[in-house]
């Protein structure tokens, strides 16, 4: 039983009563266990960063600043290794994915909240969740065997007609095989995985757009697009930025689909259409089995994993702050 023990402390005039809550043992155990669960989750995350740092510390210490400036990765051959090439290439793939995914996700989220017939709205929303649950292995296989043979034509067209832009410039771009396994194709496949993540966040924020202001816009004679443009989109801007950042975090860490598509390449470059690219997660996945027996190579990969961990954590922290702030604005509605 919870007993509220409230008695006057002294006869010193009007003082507030001191409320003391005495809990019975079962309750104390329950609260302790639940708090323990929370603390366990908290420490687990600390452990992840801690163990990665512990394992890779001597490698980072030995390599020093060269780990950030070296482009090649010859750890298994006892050569130099660093993330100066794979980190920018990781970002290139993620940015291509975001550039494709965000417009699609925005339109899809607006469709789900404003345009879809009410009856199919629920079905479509769970369809988005299903898209998020499709294994990345499946996306990778589909991208490699189905999407890539079709996409190389688009790559070639972009290179032929817009080749003067450095992003689309490909040297010796006459054969279609010069356009396979590129940053662009990996980015398109990753964008398929990012769309459901972005859509979910944006849909939640768009759905909170104040009804009163929407009706106000309608009363002033706005069309549906007018309502979306003047009320829903400005209101959901925080959610859009947050969803984009969250998708960016997901795209940076994507492993298997990228591993399937790419062919390893260790030189950061502007051209996204040319054959050959890399990412940190693919580097770990592709080199792990041959590095297990070599402690330096193995711990080098762990250091690369630590770099990825830090980058995604930073991106996601920014994202969740922005989303949380945009939600807190929701309480000011009429």
């Amino acid at each position: 039983m919870t007993v509220l023990d409230a008695r006057p402390i002294a006869d010193a005039g009007d003082v507030p009563l001191r409320v003391v809550v005495r809990r019975n043992p079962a309750d104390r155990v329950y609260r302790g266990v639940a708090r323990g669960g929370g603390v366990a989750t908290l420490t687990l995350m600390g452990f992840i960063g801690g163990f990665l740092l512990l394992r890779s510390f001597h490698v980072l210490n030995a390599r020093g600043f060269a780990f950030l400036t070296e482009k090649r990765w010859l750890a298994a051959q006892n050569g130099p290794f660093g993330i100066a090439a794979v980190l920018p290439l990781t970002f290139e793939i993620a940015i291509v994915a975001i550039v494709i995914a965000v417009p699609v996700a925005t339109v899809a989220a607006l469709f789900l909240t404003e345009y879809a017939p009410r009856r199919v709205r629920r079905l479509l929303t769970s369809l988005v969740d299903l898209l998020a649950a499709v294994p990345s292995l499946i996306y990778g296989l589909w991208g490699l065997f189905y999407l890539q043979p079709h996409l190389v034509h688009v790559s070639k067209w972009l290179s032929d007609h817009l080749g003067f832009i450095p992003f689309f410039h490909v040297q010796n771009g006459t054969a279609l095989s010069a356009f396979t396994s590129s940053t662009f194709i990996a980015g398109v496949v990753v964008s398929l995985m990012v769309v459901p993540v972005c859509t979910t966040v944006m849909r939640e924020v768009f759905a909170q757009a104040p009804q009163g202001e929407k009706e106000g816009a309608l009363a002033l004679g706005a069309t549906k697009w007018g309502v979306v443009r003047t009320v829903v989109l400005p209101f959901g801007r925080g959610g859009m930025i947050g969803g984009t950042m969250l998708g960016l975090g997901r795209a940076l860490g994507e492993t298997i689909a990228v591993t399937f598509i790419i062919s390893p390449f260790f030189q950061p470059r502007a051209s996204i259409l040319a054959n050959g690219t890399h990412s940190i997660s693919a580097l770990i996945a592709l080199n792990f089995s041959e590095s297990v027996s070599n402690p330096t190579a193995r711990d080098g990969l762990i250091a690369a994993g630590l770099a990825l961990f830090v980058v995604t954590l930073g991106v996601n922290a920014i994202a969740s702050t922005i989303v949380a702030r945009s939600r807190s604005g929701a309480s000011t509605e009429i």
Binding site: T41, L44, G253, T255, G305, T312, N316, A319
Partner: peptide, 8 residues
């Protein structure tokens, strides 16, 4: 954590 890269 929900956005932790799976390889990490």
């Amino acid at each position: 954590m929900s956005a932790l890269p799976s390889i990490v």
